[in-house]
Amino acid sequence: MDAWLFEIIGKFNYWIYVVLMMTGFYAMIRKNNLIKKLLGMNIFQTAIILLYISMGSKVGGKIPILDKEQALAGAVQVADVVNPLPHVLMLTAIVVSVSVTGVALAVALRIYKEYGSIDEDQILERIGKS
């Protein structure tokens, strides 16, 4: 029991990432409402962002803005500062995620104008009738 609890608490950020990812995945696959699917997609992408940010973090790590004198003297301990690279990567991933969401919303709007619904079953029903 103790070992099990330690596993969860010690790596809780990774557990949250798994739970978030599965929630998003479920919504994308299972929900009929197009907007709910999109929300699921965003949760899914956020989970991955959390994974990347977790990689870079260190217990007691400082922000990675270095003092010039100190850096030139070689006195900066890498273990003391948070790894900035995953953050930079995730800035790009956020931009990608925003653009995909934007395109998807625009497409959803066109679907709504065409069929008057954002429910997948209803839309397919209306396609079948016409």
């Binding site: 995945f25 994308m28 197009l34 699917k37 997609m41 899914f44 992408q45 991955i48 994974l51 991933a93 990608v96 995909v100 395109v103 998807a104 497409v107 959803a108 066109r110 679907i111 065409e114 069929y115 839309i123 396609i127």
Partner: peptide, 22 residues
């Protein structure tokens, strides 16, 4: 039906790209 097909592609394509990113 193009917008609806595109929407399905967005959902599937994003899953694919996210798997790659993972």
């Amino acid at each position: 039906r193009a917008p609806l097909s595109s929407f399905n592609y967005i959902i599937m394509g994003t899953i694919g790209a996210c798997f790659y990113l993972l």
